[in-house]
Protein backbone atom coordinates (compact mmCIF):
# COMPACT_ATOMS: atom_id res chain seq x y z
CA UNK A 1 0.00 0.00 0.00
CA UNK A 2 1.20 3.46 -0.89
CA UNK A 3 0.47 6.21 1.61
CA UNK A 4 0.99 9.95 2.02
CA UNK A 5 1.40 11.81 5.28
CA UNK A 6 -1.54 13.94 6.44
CA UNK A 7 -0.47 16.30 9.21
CA UNK A 8 1.05 14.98 12.43
CA UNK A 9 -1.11 11.89 12.93
CA UNK A 10 -2.61 10.88 9.59
CA UNK A 11 -1.86 8.74 6.56
CA UNK A 12 -3.75 8.78 3.27
CA UNK A 13 -3.62 5.39 1.53
CA UNK A 14 -3.85 5.77 -2.26
CA UNK A 15 -5.93 3.30 -4.28
CA UNK A 16 -6.30 2.80 -8.03
CA UNK A 17 -10.05 2.28 -8.11
CA UNK A 18 -13.21 1.92 -6.00
CA UNK A 19 -12.80 -1.86 -5.65
CA UNK A 20 -9.32 -1.40 -4.18
CA UNK A 21 -10.70 1.22 -1.78
CA UNK A 22 -13.29 -1.31 -0.63
CA UNK A 23 -10.70 -4.02 0.00
CA UNK A 24 -8.23 -1.60 1.61
CA UNK A 25 -10.91 -0.15 3.88
CA UNK A 26 -12.07 -3.63 4.96
CA UNK A 27 -8.48 -4.62 5.77
CA UNK A 28 -7.59 -1.41 7.60
CA UNK A 29 -10.82 -1.33 9.61
CA UNK A 30 -10.17 -4.88 10.80
CA UNK A 31 -6.65 -3.89 11.84
CA UNK A 32 -7.42 -0.40 13.16
CA UNK A 33 -6.71 -1.33 16.76
CA UNK A 34 -3.45 -3.04 15.86
CA UNK A 35 -2.39 0.08 13.93
CA UNK A 36 -3.54 2.40 16.72
CA UNK A 37 -5.82 4.39 14.39
CA UNK A 38 -8.76 6.28 15.89
CA UNK A 39 -10.39 6.86 12.48
CA UNK A 40 -10.44 4.77 9.30
CA UNK A 41 -12.26 6.73 6.62
CA UNK A 42 -12.77 5.63 3.00
CA UNK A 43 -13.56 7.98 0.13
CA UNK A 44 -13.53 7.72 -3.67
CA UNK A 45 -9.87 6.72 -4.28
CA UNK A 46 -8.26 7.01 -0.84
CA UNK A 47 -8.56 5.67 2.71
CA UNK A 48 -7.52 7.83 5.67
CA UNK A 49 -5.93 6.53 8.85
CA UNK A 50 -6.02 9.20 11.56
CA UNK A 51 -4.93 9.38 15.17
CA UNK A 52 -1.71 7.44 14.57
CA UNK A 53 1.01 7.85 17.20
CA UNK A 54 3.82 7.31 14.67
CA UNK A 55 2.54 7.64 11.08
CA UNK A 56 6.05 7.28 9.70
CA UNK A 57 6.39 3.81 11.23
CA UNK A 58 2.88 2.87 10.09
CA UNK A 59 3.73 4.06 6.58
CA UNK A 60 6.74 1.74 6.49
CA UNK A 61 4.58 -1.12 7.78
CA UNK A 62 1.88 -0.49 5.16
CA UNK A 63 4.45 -0.40 2.35
CA UNK A 64 5.12 -4.08 3.06
CA UNK A 65 1.43 -5.06 2.97
CA UNK A 66 0.16 -6.71 -0.18
CA UNK A 67 -3.55 -6.57 -0.85
CA UNK A 68 -4.79 -9.68 -2.56
CA UNK A 69 -7.58 -7.61 -4.06
CA UNK A 70 -11.27 -7.59 -3.34
CA UNK A 71 -12.68 -11.02 -2.56
CA UNK A 72 -16.30 -12.10 -2.13
CA UNK A 73 -15.57 -12.60 1.57
CA UNK A 74 -15.46 -8.85 1.93
CA UNK A 75 -19.16 -8.59 1.19
CA UNK A 76 -20.76 -6.69 4.04
CA UNK A 77 -24.29 -6.98 5.39
CA UNK A 78 -27.12 -6.51 2.91
CA UNK A 79 -29.88 -3.97 3.40
CA UNK A 80 -33.10 -3.74 1.40
CA UNK A 81 -34.69 -0.34 1.00
CA UNK A 82 -38.31 0.03 -0.10
CA UNK A 83 -38.76 2.89 -2.52
CA UNK A 84 -41.78 4.50 -4.05
CA UNK A 85 -40.36 5.62 -7.38
CA UNK A 86 -42.21 8.91 -7.79
CA UNK A 87 -39.39 11.48 -7.52
CA UNK A 88 -39.61 14.80 -9.35
CA UNK A 89 -36.45 14.19 -11.43
CA UNK A 90 -37.30 10.74 -12.87
CA UNK A 91 -37.83 12.15 -16.36
CA UNK A 92 -34.65 14.20 -16.20
CA UNK A 93 -32.61 11.13 -15.24
CA UNK A 94 -34.36 9.10 -17.95
CA UNK A 95 -33.30 11.68 -20.53
CA UNK A 96 -29.70 11.61 -19.28
CA UNK A 97 -29.66 7.80 -19.36
CA UNK A 98 -31.38 7.68 -22.78
CA UNK A 99 -34.26 5.58 -21.51
CA UNK A 100 -37.69 6.27 -20.00
CA UNK A 101 -38.81 6.57 -16.37
CA UNK A 102 -39.67 2.86 -16.23
CA UNK A 103 -36.16 2.09 -17.49
CA UNK A 104 -34.56 4.14 -14.70
CA UNK A 105 -36.67 2.37 -12.08
CA UNK A 106 -35.84 -1.05 -13.55
CA UNK A 107 -32.06 -0.39 -13.64
CA UNK A 108 -32.06 1.06 -10.10
CA UNK A 109 -33.77 -2.08 -8.77
CA UNK A 110 -31.65 -4.54 -10.74
CA UNK A 111 -28.32 -3.31 -9.35
CA UNK A 112 -26.73 -4.51 -6.15
CA UNK A 113 -25.06 -1.43 -4.75
CA UNK A 114 -22.22 -1.21 -2.24
CA UNK A 115 -21.65 1.74 0.09
CA UNK A 116 -18.28 3.09 -1.05
CA UNK A 117 -18.08 5.82 1.58
CA UNK A 118 -20.15 8.25 3.64
CA UNK A 119 -19.99 12.02 3.69
CA UNK A 120 -22.02 15.22 3.32
CA UNK A 121 -24.16 14.32 6.36
CA UNK A 122 -24.23 11.59 9.05
CA UNK A 123 -25.41 8.41 7.34
CA UNK A 124 -25.34 9.85 3.79
CA UNK A 125 -23.93 6.89 1.82
CA UNK A 126 -22.29 7.11 -1.60
CA UNK A 127 -23.43 3.80 -3.16
CA UNK A 128 -21.66 2.42 -6.23
CA UNK A 129 -22.87 -0.34 -8.52
CA UNK A 130 -24.61 1.31 -11.47
CA UNK A 131 -23.62 -0.11 -14.87
CA UNK A 132 -20.38 1.40 -16.20
CA UNK A 133 -20.86 4.69 -17.97
CA UNK A 134 -24.24 5.40 -16.41
CA UNK A 135 -23.62 8.75 -14.76
CA UNK A 136 -26.04 11.41 -13.64
CA UNK A 137 -25.43 15.14 -13.79
CA UNK A 138 -26.38 17.10 -10.68
CA UNK A 139 -29.11 19.73 -10.83
CA UNK A 140 -27.73 23.08 -11.93
CA UNK A 141 -29.62 24.73 -9.05
CA UNK A 142 -29.52 22.74 -5.78
CA UNK A 143 -32.84 22.50 -3.94
CA UNK A 144 -32.90 24.40 -0.63
CA UNK A 145 -34.89 21.57 0.95
CA UNK A 146 -34.68 17.90 0.03
CA UNK A 147 -36.94 15.79 2.29
CA UNK A 148 -35.46 13.04 4.46
CA UNK A 149 -35.78 9.65 2.73
CA UNK A 150 -35.36 11.03 -0.79
CA UNK A 151 -33.66 8.48 -3.06
CA UNK A 152 -31.24 10.30 -5.31
CA UNK A 153 -28.62 10.00 -8.05
CA UNK A 154 -25.49 12.03 -8.88
CA UNK A 155 -22.28 11.15 -10.71
CA UNK A 156 -21.70 7.39 -10.50
CA UNK A 157 -23.55 7.21 -7.16
CA UNK A 158 -26.98 6.66 -5.69
CA UNK A 159 -27.89 7.65 -2.12
CA UNK A 160 -30.73 8.36 0.29
CA UNK A 161 -30.94 11.67 2.19
CA UNK A 162 -30.88 10.71 5.91
CA UNK A 163 -32.38 14.02 6.98
CA UNK A 164 -33.99 17.01 5.36
CA UNK A 165 -31.27 19.26 3.97
CA UNK A 166 -30.32 21.30 0.92
CA UNK A 167 -29.19 19.12 -1.96
CA UNK A 168 -28.29 19.06 -5.64
CA UNK A 169 -28.82 15.39 -6.46
CA UNK A 170 -31.55 14.20 -8.85
CA UNK A 171 -34.49 12.74 -6.90
CA UNK A 172 -36.09 9.57 -8.27
CA UNK A 173 -38.09 8.32 -5.29
CA UNK A 174 -38.56 8.17 -1.54
CA UNK A 175 -38.37 5.69 1.32
CA UNK A 176 -39.95 5.78 4.77
CA UNK A 177 -37.06 3.77 6.26
CA UNK A 178 -34.82 5.65 8.69
CA UNK A 179 -31.24 5.94 7.51
CA UNK A 180 -29.79 7.53 10.65
CA UNK A 181 -30.43 5.87 14.03
CA UNK A 182 -28.25 7.67 16.61
CA UNK A 183 -29.66 5.58 19.46
CA UNK A 184 -28.11 2.42 17.94
CA UNK A 185 -24.52 1.24 18.42
CA UNK A 186 -24.32 1.21 14.60
CA UNK A 187 -26.12 4.47 13.87
CA UNK A 188 -25.87 4.42 10.05
CA UNK A 189 -28.17 1.99 8.21
CA UNK A 190 -25.75 2.30 5.28
CA UNK A 191 -22.14 2.11 6.50
CA UNK A 192 -19.15 1.62 4.16
CA UNK A 193 -19.14 -1.94 2.80
CA UNK A 194 -22.89 -2.49 3.24
CA UNK A 195 -24.61 -3.94 0.17
CA UNK A 196 -27.85 -2.23 -0.79
CA UNK A 197 -30.83 -3.28 -2.91
CA UNK A 198 -33.73 -1.00 -3.72
CA UNK A 199 -37.20 -2.53 -4.01
CA UNK A 200 -40.10 -0.67 -5.58
CA UNK A 201 -43.38 -0.31 -3.70
CA UNK A 202 -46.60 1.47 -4.63
CA UNK A 203 -46.80 5.06 -3.44
CA UNK A 204 -49.27 5.45 -0.61
Amino acid sequence: MQARRVGEHGLLVLCDDAATVRATYAELRTRARELGATEVVPAARTVLLDGLADPEATSVLLASWELLGPSPDLAGPEVEIEVSYDGPDLDEVAAQWRTDAAGVVRIHQECTFVVAFCGFAPGFAYCTGLPDGLVTTRRSEPRPRVPAGSVALAGEFTSVYPRTSPGGWQLIGATSQRLWLPERAEPALLAPGTRVRFVGIQAR
Binding site: T38, V40, G51, G123, A188, A191
Partner: peptide, 9 residues
Protein backbone atom coordinates in the same frame (compact mmCIF):
# COMPACT_ATOMS: atom_id res chain seq x y z
CA UNK B 1 -17.28 12.60 19.04
CA UNK B 2 -14.24 11.34 17.11
CA UNK B 3 -14.33 7.80 15.71
CA UNK B 4 -17.40 8.13 13.48
CA UNK B 5 -15.95 9.97 10.48
CA UNK B 6 -16.49 6.90 8.27
CA UNK B 7 -20.23 7.41 8.80
CA UNK B 8 -20.04 11.08 7.82
CA UNK B 9 -20.07 12.33 11.42
Amino acid sequence: RPGHAHLGV
